[in-house]
Amino acid sequence: MKSRNKRFLLVAVGLLLLSLAAWLVLSAFQKNLVFFFTPTQILAGEAPQGHSFRVGGMVEKGSLQRQTDGVTVSFMVTDTAQRVTVHYRGMLPDLFKEGKGVVAQGKLSEGKVFVADEVLAKHDENYMPPEAAYALKKAEQTSTLQAKDGR
């Protein structure tokens, strides 16, 4: 085999291995990618059906309901414009309270009910996930504009 053919074969094998490595990295990244949606976006149909994502906002006051088994709860997450029911089975974080910020990760079931696998609560008085803070601010601005327009 000529040295030119050997060089070509080496470059081809190198490109093939590099392509395989890139495909594996992107595949793993895609499987672990989790998007964030607000209750308004979920009710508008923007959230994916059958795929895991995060919903965030405030836990609506008076919406927390605990089941008799002690580990199953349901509550409403609101962005001040819309609200979504969240069902969760497990231990809630110590800082989880009504009227406070929350982010839940899970899947949307039939009837626009969010079934959470994980619930995260804010960790101090000033913290809110940036996505949730932006969504609340945007929803508040929208409701203020609608009130001014008389809707």
Rank of each mutant, 00 (worst) to 15 (best):
V115N: 06
P129A: 15
D117W: 02
K6L: 14
T80L: 14
V102W: 06
P129D: 13
V86A: 01
G150F: 01
A47I: 07
V119C: 00
M128T: 12
L120Q: 09
G106V: 00
L120W: 00
V84E: 04
G50Q: 09
L64N: 02
R151C: 11
S27I: 07
F114C: 09
A81H: 13
V77P: 00
V84K: 03
V77D: 00
G57L: 03
A44T: 02
R4P: 11
A135I: 11
V25T: 07
T80E: 14
Y88P: 00
V115Q: 03
A133G: 13
K100I: 04
K107W: 00
P130K: 07
A147D: 10
V103A: 06
Y88F: 06
A47M: 09
L15Q: 10
G106R: 00
A44I: 00
D149M: 12
S143A: 08
P130G: 09
A132W: 06
L120C: 09
V73D: 01
F35S: 07
Q65P: 12
L92V: 01
T80H: 07
V25E: 06
H51A: 10
Q41Y: 02
A22E: 05
Q105I: 08
V71A: 13
L20C: 08
D117A: 05
L95Q: 13
Q67T: 07
A133P: 04
L9H: 12
K6G: 15
Q65F: 04
V86K: 00
I42E: 05
A147G: 08
M1P: 11
L145E: 10
E125I: 02
V13R: 06
K137M: 12
A21D: 08
K138R: 15
L43G: 06
G57I: 00
R83T: 04
Q30P: 06
Q82S: 11
R54C: 03
Y127M: 14
G14N: 11
K2N: 12
Y127I: 09
V84M: 08
E110L: 03
L18H: 05
L24V: 09
V77L: 04
M128Y: 05
L16S: 08
P48M: 07
A81Q: 12
R89C: 01
F35T: 12
G99Y: 02
V119A: 00
L64F: 01
Q49K: 11
K97V: 03
Q146M: 08
P130T: 14
V77E: 04
L16Q: 15
K61W: 03
A104E: 13
L95F: 05
R7E: 10
V113W: 09
V102I: 04
G106E: 05
H87Q: 10
F35E: 08
D117C: 03
E46K: 15
F37G: 09
L20P: 15
A81M: 14
Q49F: 06
Q49M: 06
V59G: 02
